[in-house]
Design a binder for these strands. Sequence first.
DNA 1: TGGCATTATTGAAGCGCTTCAAAAGCAAGA
DNA 2: TCTTGCTTTTGAAGCGCTTCAATAATGCCA
Lengths: 332, 332
Amino acid sequence: MADVARHAGVSLGTVSNVLNSPAKVAPSTLTRVRASIDALGFVRNNLARSLAAGRADTLGFVIVDIGNSLFVDIARGAQEVSGEQGMKLLLANSDVDLAAQNSYLDLFDEARVGGVLLAPLDGPLDAAARVRSHGRPVVLVNAPDPQTDTCGVVVDEELGGYLATRHVLDSGRRRLAYTGGPLTLHAVAQRYAGARRAVEEAGAGATLELIETTKLTISEGLALGRSLAERDETHRPTAVISAADALASGCVQALIYAGIRVPDDIAIIGYDNNHFASDSVVPISTVGQPGHEMGRIATELLLEEIRSPGDHVHRTITLEPQLIARASTRSV
Amino acid sequence: MADVARHAGVSLGTVSNVLNSPAKVAPSTLTRVRASIDALGFVRNNLARSLAAGRADTLGFVIVDIGNSLFVDIARGAQEVSGEQGMKLLLANSDVDLAAQNSYLDLFDEARVGGVLLAPLDGPLDAAARVRSHGRPVVLVNAPDPQTDTCGVVVDEELGGYLATRHVLDSGRRRLAYTGGPLTLHAVAQRYAGARRAVEEAGAGATLELIETTKLTISEGLALGRSLAERDETHRPTAVISAADALASGCVQALIYAGIRVPDDIAIIGYDNNHFASDSVVPISTVGQPGHEMGRIATELLLEEIRSPGDHVHRTITLEPQLIARASTRSV
DNA sequence: TGGCATTATTGAAGCGCTTCAAAAGCAAGA
DNA sequence: TCTTGCTTTTGAAGCGCTTCAATAATGCCA
């Protein structure tokens, strides 16, 4: 920067003003300094900038699983708001590994980012607490357990399960099965609770079977579909509420392969609104999570806390999932 | 750090040594200073550290599409090597947007990262050149056109197309179709070239039809499958080489739905080894790209250039794709 | 033309660390 | 006791920027 100042015949402070508050600089000086910047190919050193200014224009986002489209959507939403507010968003993938998650939290802490978004894995959040104790705001996104000493954004999983189940009940099915697992996963258990509530509400004649799986994958879905196909028709559910689209997609494929008609013989609804739910031979109904909005809101909460730490009050925003009806649950 | 020094009754330099080269510090001092660090909850400021030291322990990775599992694999490989070599990896998602890509390149440039990995979109690379001109190494990953003034890692796309096509020819099919698009995409065109080579080699009787699509999505695949199903059997290809798994997956689903048997009536092979290729009712053969290895090698090249800028010689490593045979191309 | 209020520019003091020459401490041999 | 050759520790000089009080330049009005 000193070179630029010399080249333009001004002082260091003026170059700094050109960069940060051009309004304070006389037009002629402005153009002259800018010309020098270009001529010298000057790039300001953001390390020194943040160090001297004592503030950062960067946010960090530690993501539990970059391979999951929900988190990619969240990241996109977060990136959008960051951009709008003149902040940059840096991502780190913890890859469902607690040690990596903690290490990236520390990295962002040491890098003095303005704040951190954390989509955590099921596990202890002490590293996040440490970051927070250094005066660096942390917002939890899609965390299993809402905290009171931090802002957060979650989706009402119970409601999602309820909506899905209510939807197939409305379509006329009565013998239902909920599938997903393991039930130790917060989301899977909550969605199941919602399903039970809907069935209880429906009253007489409606039943809900639980088919627990070990994972939420397409292969588990294929296995599920095959085992349903083998069942006697009178013992086969007429509708399956799945805790994940992957599961539902595998199930649909295996059923069709076995000659069972979807939705005529059996209706299926998934969860997550992944692209392969819509892009299926029989488009699969699902429950969408507002990932994009989650990312936006989380970032707004974070920026609010960064900018007015004084009168900021922590809160957890609960968003509603949305039913997306497609062919796989059509009334027959 | 001054607080720690005061608390431990030593000088600033000693605290710095405790942090950076503990071997230089007497054991008793070491424990005392470390106790003070813990007592005060001190976190070193990496901005100041990098600024003073003039070097960074962070790498940046600008990713064209975080929703594509190939790039996620690459990122994982890169992260692995970074970790092994004591570096941290920060990700940025350009989301197939040139402006965003450039903006993140500049961000990493200003943040004075040690070097940058770039999985670019088809488009101008001038922002990367700018970063490089500031003395910051850039390694291109999966770039359409290898450069001579930069290191790079690419996969031999032509070979991939050749392997896939050769495989279905070996399985006895003769009336082939290559599908994918648009052909302006480097990879799609290269894979097609490989397919043509294999068919020419096979000689008499083998034919290759080109079915260009507008995108490489499951929906395009569904449409493709439907249109193939409508064809007269004698004009229907007996094998389809698809430029992407998404396409192949949609195609398989639509064919099966229409009652056409895979692989008996028609064999299909995809490309990319996405999870939904393996997790299909009929597991789909595909060509795998060594994403993990690409990430590892790219990072190794980058670190080499960072650490010995003098005798580093730029090179582009070309990796070979790998045929993954599954049920969808079984001989009949 | 002089005086006053604005607007532009300057320059020095940090931000929190690393580095390294110099000083201090120490042990053992003469 | 005095050296000599080590190991430890010190402290001041930056790294490249922002900030802000102080200064200089400018415009306006009487």
